[in-house]
């Protein structure tokens, strides 16, 4: 294997490891939230530093590759995409840590299962996990034939997000003493919706890398 190919492989592997860590952070965020697991939430917060370190490493690997190997065509697109995907993954990691802080901050005794179920949050977490893992497969296999299906999942995320306002409002009308918690719940759902946006951004970057096709600002499933 040529030196430039080895460096490219290292760059890819760094992104893979970061992706796996962020996926695991999101999976843990789901478990911690669904099971009110404060210990798991604390673990997520601790591991956030590793996600940040990966972002710096990916950044520096991309910079070095451009400086040393003057990539063109698919190699150039990979480096440009990898740098952006690194940023998006770091933000997803931040948002997962935000979910974890939501769990550690609140008083466990006031947790309301009725609201949690009403908001369809398990479905929301699962959709996001599918989006993030499916686009990881796309990136690793350099195969983007399913990108429209992944982008379409953002519709599910958006639908849950939209409904969550009405459901939270109804819940708070019936339980006005829960207003402080209700407002935090809205913030939590907003964080999860942002994760959906970042997953879509990652899909767009992967399509740019593999097919040289720009999807950004063009309507998600065109």
């Amino acid at each position: 294997m040529k030196n430039s190919d080895k460096e490219m492989q290292l760059l890819k592997e760094e992104i893979y490891k970061m992706w796996e860590l962020v996926l695991s952070q999101l999976e843990k965020a789901k478990q911690a939230f669904m099971n009110n697991d404060v210990d798991l939430a604390l673990e997520i917060i601790t591991l956030e530093r590793r996600v940040n370190a990966f972002e710096l490493k990916v950044d520096s690997n991309c910079e070095n590759y451009i400086a040393l190997f003057s990539p063109v065509a698919i190699d150039l697109r990979l480096v440009l995409s990898a740098q952006k995907i690194g940023i998006f993954l770091e933000r997803i990691g931040d948002l997962a840590a935000g979910v974890a802080r939501h769990i550690t901050d609140r008083d466990k005794s006031r947790m309301d299962e009725q609201l949690k179920e009403g908001l369809d949050l398990e479905n929301l977490f699962d959709t996001l996990l599918h989006m993030l893992s499916d686009c990881f497969v796309q990136f690793r296999t350099e195969s983007t034939h399913a990108y429209r299906k992944i982008l379409a999942k953002e519709e599910i995320v958006n639908a849950i997000y939209e409904k969550s306002f009405l459901r939270t409002a109804d819940y708070l009308k019936a339980n006005p003493e829960e207003i402080p918690y209700g407002l935090k719940a809205i913030l939590l759902i907003h964080r999860l919706e942002r994760i959906g946006d970042y997953c879509s951004n990652i899909v767009e970057e992967t399509v740019f890398y593999v097919k040289a096709k720009v999807l950004k600002h063009k309507g998600k499933t065109e």
């Binding site: 063109v72 065509a73 698919i74 150039l76 697109r77 040289a212």
Partner: peptide, 11 residues
């Protein structure tokens, strides 16, 4: 050619 060559041989 340097961003998106059409032919695999060129790439």
């Amino acid at each position: 050619i340097f961003t998106n060559p059409r032919h695999k041989k060129t790439q």
